[in-house]
Write a protein that binds this DNA or RNA. Structure first.
Lengths: 348, 348
DNA sequence: ATATAATTCCAAAGCGCTTTGACACCTCAC
DNA sequence: GTGAGGTGTCAAAGCGCTTTGGAATTATAT
């Protein structure tokens, strides 16, 4: 069943049917209803290839998926993808992926762009001075980045959260509670969000004349095991930290295991604030000691990015080019005043 | 630059240029050369949408990517994807993915099929009695599965390795070396390959009147941490196993850590055979005690699957519908005769 | 009543490719 | 010299949709 047959069936022209289907105003509501009804009955679906040829739009956005463990290996990316996918399905868009050696992301991106299979590109897992940026800019194809690239001029379209602000605020809260010895459970050191979160923490500490010792910062992929191992190390330090900042609730999961095994009480002996990406299976309020968090939904970011990308392709883009989402600081039970015996140790 | 312009530039018809480009025989070699040369100079690339409309082929294969941690979260899938991608790029094919809630894989698959964006479907991570199979068969769209579905009639196109045979052979080798107490570090219990590998082991044991105790089989996602934890448990058993079969070199990595920490010598106190997917960063010969393995390249499987899928779409498919690759059993240093003190414990 | 504007629809022209059916042209055999 | 059989090329017809530029019909203003 194609347009021609459908229109003959209805005794209308292809034009009218096409317009009825695509929501153009110059068609009588009654006729539109009739068309929609016929579509339902016949199961007509417009041919994508023809649509694409006629409009010049493929209805697809491309992304390169590095086939290395680090990048796509975590639940965070899955959650984000879910958001992207949800919105894409809603608009009948689809994703074209290009699996790529991590050493050749730039090349893969270029190949994807010139392949003619995609209308726009999406990139994530930005690093400092990310080499993909200049290439994307040279490409004359719309793109959108999730995150930013530390050290690069921010003159590209992005959606990011205020990582620096989030960890700055979190650190301030802990400072106000009297903590002076901090540890950081962070994501991989080269990633932009990890850089900024660390900066946020360091900035807050600096205001009080404090610093973050080398051995109190851990950079790993964000699994609970890594959270546990790193925290175990922190807890064995001579001046062990009383406050931990954590780049993910997944890391926190492991961290808390380590805290418990050390016989310490979360929220009393040691305070912890985690960044909460709002992963559905890991709600901070359901932890045995509910977690104080900085919150920003990763899925929502996925949805938003899909919206913007799709709007750009459809050329009806009233969206801002650059968005920086604030995070919420939500205080629960995992933070408390610094224990008395730790009050004047370390610090200034 | 399009075909028309290119052909005018060359003083040829569109027909001839098109045929020259697509390798048809009825064009003079000299003309073909001339065309190819012009393509190089002008940078002409055929319009995908037009090609697609004219031929009815999208040049793309679809796969649904479950957005749950387990499925795509491991290096194994990445390695496989690399193979797929490598071959796809070679043929100028691409992948359309549909992120999907794991509970709705079947629906996602259907949506992908009727979206009109793909020529064929690919599925992996098969489970026993996999519900995707009947739906795929009802679809009148070519598909190919990596692995098989235990319990389903094997009347669908697949590429699998002989998991049962691999672990049967591995177990036989260890039995010949006198081992009687076995443990199994396996993948998630519901996955087909895990089921079959366990069956292979159990079958070999049964021939000697042995069995695999409940607490000597571990089913987890295949990370080194899980390998370590599970092995630690094995080693604390009263009748601890002297032989370990391991579904991945990644699991083996952790297992060996546990063995070392327990002060045991690999290949002497305890023997281990791992399945080797030929992950580039994890070569069994580079382990401090080189690993005895059953080997089958996951990347090669990816390449092969892409080849078959592409050939099917292009209708020039001389490939068999079903392939079962044998694995190689490669003996290195991680296997040895059962230690004397363990010789007559346990078993029959 | 007639002129003007909105409303609703249509025929036909693309979009850029592949493929069919024909047509020259050039052997080669008889 | 003619007919058969290749070879190399082309014009034109799709593929199934969107969109342009009218045209017919109806509503509104004069």
């Amino acid at each position: 069943m194609n347009l021609k047959q459908l229109s003959e069936l209805l005794g209308l022209s292809q034009t009218t049917v096409s317009r009825a289907l695509n929501g153009y105003p110059e068609v009588n509501e009654a006729t539109r209803e009739r068309v929609l009804q016929a579509v339902k009955e016949t199961g007509y679906r417009p041919n994508k290839a023809a649509q694409r040829l006629a409009t010049g739009k493929a209805g697809s956005i491309g992304l390169v998926m590095p086939t290395a463990p680090d990048h796509y290996s975590d639940v965070h990316f899955g959650e984000f993808l879910t958001g992207l996918g949800e919105e894409a399905v809603r608009h009948d868009f689809h994703f074209v992926i290009m699996p790529a050696d991590p050493n050749d992301e730039v090349g893969a991106l270029r190949r994807l762009a010139i392949s003619g299979n995609v209308d726009a590109l999406f990139v994530a897992y930005m690093r400092g001075h990310d080499p993909r940026l200049p290439m994307l800019k040279s490409l004359s194809m719309p793109f959108l980045v999730h995150g930013r690239s530390f050290g690069s001029e921010p003159d590209y379209p992005y959606l990011d959260i205020d990582n620096e602000g989030a960890f700055y605020d979190a650190a301030r809260l802990l400072l106000q509670l009297g903590h002076t010895r901090f540890a950081l459970l962070n994501g991989p050191a080269h990633l932009d969000f990890a850089i900024r979160r660390k900066n946020g923490l360091v900035a807050a500490l600096a205001e009080r004349g404090l610093d973050l010792p080398e051995d109190c910062a851990s950079h790993t992929t964000m699994t609970d095991e890594h959270g546990q191992f790193a925290t175990e190390r922190f807890l064995q330090l001579p001046d062990r930290p009383t406050a931990i900042l954590c780049s993910s609730t997944v890391l926190a999961l492991g961290a808390i295991r380590a805290v418990n095994q050390a016989g310490l009480k979360l929220g009393e002996d040691i305070s912890l604030i985690a960044h909460d990406d709002v992963l559905p299976h890991l709600r901070p309020e359901n932890f045995s000691v509910p977690l104080t968090t900085t919150r920003s939904s990763l899925r929502a970011a996925g949805i938003r990015i899909a919206q913007r990308l799709i709007a750009t392709v459809k050329q009806d883009a009233p969206y801002p080019e650059q968005e920086l989402w604030k995070t919420e600081l939500i205080v629960r039970a995992s933070t408390g005043p610094v224990p008395r015996q730790d009050q004047n140790l370390g610090g200034v």
